[in-house]
């Protein structure tokens, strides 16, 4: 298990370097002078020169990248062009809000999506199955920003019981979290359904039934536990979609997180802030994928055994 962990962590390093290169190039692939674009058309020549120097744009590209990475390792992402606040401070002050939203969203999606998919699989080819499949299809076809606006229309305008924007209370969190959960819930439900359907046809489930176990035990101990594996992977894989949703939903609900900051930064060409935002989202996705891989190994004894040295031989069966 330890060697597996080390190996996975080692894979992490080149990806992080690649992401840093990608983020670095955000400022440098811009057609034209980034300093000019940031300051707008009416900037004076001196201002532009000042910004160029502040951003280090007057130095060779390779040097700029090295400086960028070494600053990055020290937690220095530069300063926002608009507000002059260090990008790092800007990110850390907004991170808790975004974490809270993403966490609630994914929790809600799992708590609703998994039972929905399980129910559909157990009642395969009934009205319940068809309608939950339709619901899932609807869930990932409806644009999340529209779903958010519709929920806002319903629950803060027509029946005013929840606030449409703001941050601080749990009531502020309900609508954004539900909107965020919809799409991932649909994906999880679909995945759970097909995964359970597949497992239920396996010989060991038939054996479990044949030896007279109660249906509930067959389902929970044999079917669900095995069906959980692909669901965990998919949930991890779609974490990127979830974070994409965070960006949009924070904008819809004027929620003070990193997503809304990123959208505003892109609109106002505040490149250091854009870099910081893209970096934090990408690193989160990489970290979650790493976590899912490790969790996967933990949940699947076959993989765990493969990496546990001498005992691995037993796993062949």
């Amino acid at each position: 298990m330890l060697s597996y962990l080390c190996r996975r962590l080692l894979f992490f390093v080149p990806i992080l370097l690649g992401v840093s290169l990608l983020v670095f190039s955000i400022m440098h692939l811009t057609p034209g002078d980034p300093a000019q674009i940031m300051l707008g058309p009416e900037a004076t020549q001196e201002d532009i020169a000042k910004v160029r120097q502040a951003l280090g744009l007057d130095r060779p590209l390779a040097v700029q990248y090295l400086v960028f990475v070494s600053n990055l390792l020290q937690g220095d992402l530069g300063r926002s062009i608009r507000s002059d606040v260090p990008v790092w401070d800007e990110l850390t002050s907004r991170l808790p809000a975004t974490f809270l939203l993403a966490g609630c969203g994914i929790l809600l999606a799992i708590c609703l999506g998994f039972p929905l998919g399980l129910l559909a699989a157990c009642r395969h080819n009934t009205l319940l199955d068809t309608s939950s499949s339709m619901l899932a299809l609807l869930g990932f076809s409806v644009p999340n920003f529209w779903a958010g606006l519709m929920l806002m229309l319903l629950f803060s305008i027509v029946i005013p019981i929840l606030p449409s924007s703001g941050y601080g209370e749990w009531r502020n969190l309900v609508l954004p979290a539900v909107t965020l959960a919809l799409q991932i819930m649909a994906i999880i439900a679909r995945m759970t359904r097909s995964s359970v359907l597949e497992v239920i046809r396996q010989d060991y489930v038939r054996t479990a039934r044949a030896k007279g176990l109660r249906e509930r035990v067959v389902l929970w101990r044999h079917a669900v536990r095995n069906a959980l594996l692909p669901v965990v992977t998919i949930t991890g894989l779609y974490f990127g979609i979830l974070l994409g949703g965070v960006v949009v939903i924070e904008t819809v609900f004027s929620y003070p997180g990193i997503g809304r900051m990123l959208v505003e930064a892109i609109r106002s060409h505040d490149y250091p802030l854009v870099q910081g935002g893209v970096l934090i989202f990408s690193v989160s996705v990489c970290a979650i994928n790493l976590g899912v891989d490790i969790l996967y190994a933990f949940l699947d004894p076959r993989i765990r055994e493969q990496y546990s040295g001498a005992r691995g031989r037993r796993a062949a069966a």
Binding site: I15, I26, I241, I266, H269, S282
Partner: peptide, 24 residues
């Protein structure tokens, strides 16, 4: 393929946003 891995590690919509941010 490493390049693709890197592109895949940025959430799709955020990557698209960043590219629009760069290109206009």
């Amino acid at each position: 393929m490493r390049l693709m891995d890197i592109l895949l590690s940025v959430p799709q919509i955020i990557l698209a946003m960043a590219i629009v941010g760069v290109l206009g």
